[in-house]
Amino acid sequence: MLPEHIRRADALRYLGGAGIAPDARMTALLDAAEAELLAAAKPKYLYQIVPLPCDELTRGADIRAHLAGCDRAVVLCATLGAAVDRLIRVSQVGDMPRAVVLDALAGVLIEQVCEGVDRLLASQMPDAYFTFRFSPGYGDYPLTLQRDFLRLLDAPRKIGLSMTDSFLLTPSKSVTAIAGISASPIPKQRRGCVICSLRDSCPYQRKGTHCGF
């Protein structure tokens, strides 16, 4: 599930540049950090197909709208493992530029791992259609469901993924999500700001508008 390369364009966006090319020094920093990260990451994932409706796992209007028309859903979780957190933690002692780069790359890498799981599921169910992944904390989908996801998947025991009292995943470079499965095509969904990966740095949102996507 480990990709050969980490998508650099995405990482650069996290790092605050917009459309500019990194210089040689920045590129060297990115190259080194990418190699370190790929060596430290031990991606692990779990998934389970659940029939819908499933009241327990679909609380909130947003998730119901998201799963409308689906008769099943896949509940999944993925993590890069504890060694990545440690790598980022160590680099924060005295080498903050590297820490920042590692953090950004790790954020992209966990998304790539999830995409790998998406592809795996698609190949196992060639006739099915999937919605995009929706995670606890998006919109009005309660973050507290993190506990139910982890318990359903037996994640602490099977892949060492657990959470804190405040529902933060540990290790931190981890994802839980649910995606709808349908036998018929799903109308293209608007992703909206709440689940946009750029929401932390979106210049439109800061001005109170949106990009129109």
Binding site: L15, G16, G17, I20, P22, M96, P97, R98, V101
Partner: peptide, 17 residues
């Protein structure tokens, strides 16, 4: 330059260091 997105965050930190 950082505000205008001409350099990246790690570069800002390197300069400050």
């Amino acid at each position: 330059d950082f505000e205008n997105k001409k350099i990246f965050l790690p570069q800002l930190i390197q300069s400050a260091n």
